[in-house]
């Protein structure tokens, strides 16, 4: 085989490989919708985050607007601190927006849901969401139910 044919075939091969990478990046992964960390961050403190994980969805009215960036435990408030990355175009949530933790699907995947309040000021980078509601933990609910029915 002459070297020209080989060069053409190798060129074809490289193009195909790069096309596959681009296809994976745009069509399969979240690169197109969430290109890195170009959003703004807000923090929320929860009593209990249940099964929430890093990279869990953050949704408003069912629409994904961001993701959970990090989770750690704050030793000052004794609460779980969840840092949320919200995409840039959703930049006008009121300051008194509340954060909840919900369960989606039967596989019990948990996500964070935001509910906008009525404040005139908007959340910006580094703000803290004041109103939060912890995750529902099944054991605790059962415990409360048993306790209340025993009290009757």
């Amino acid at each position: 085989m002459n070297s020209r044919a080989i060069e053409i075939l190798v060129g074809f091969f490289m193009a195909l490989g790069i096309a596959a990478l681009v296809m994976l990046a745009l069509q399969v992964s979240n690169l197109a919708s969430f290109g890195g960390d170009n959003g703004y961050r807000v923090e929320a403190y929860f009593e209990d985050i249940g099964g929430l994980k890093v990279r869990s969805q953050v949704a408003v009215g069912g629409v994904q607007v961001g993701k959970v960036e990090s989770i750690d435990y704050d030793m000052d408030t004794f609460k779980a601190r969840v840092t949320i990355n919200i995409q840039e175009q959703y930049n006008s949530f009121p300051l008194d927006t509340s954060a909840n933790i919900y369960t989606a699907g039967l596989l019990c995947e948990q996500y964070s849901g935001l509910e906008p309040g009525g404040d005139v000021d908007f959340l910006t980078d580094g703000d803290v969401i004041e109103i939060t509601q912890s995750a529902m933990v099944l054991e605790r609910l059962i415990g409360q139910y048993l306790f209340s029915s025993a009290g009757k």
């Binding site: 069509q27 399969v28 992964s29 979240n30 690169l31 919708s33 969430f34 290109g35 990279r55």
Partner: peptide, 14 residues
């Protein structure tokens, strides 16, 4: 496609 896109992370997975 949409479930795939929202749950496959570019850095982490690809």
């Amino acid at each position: 496609w949409s479930q795939m896109q929202s749950n496959v992370d570019f850095n982490m997975d690809l």
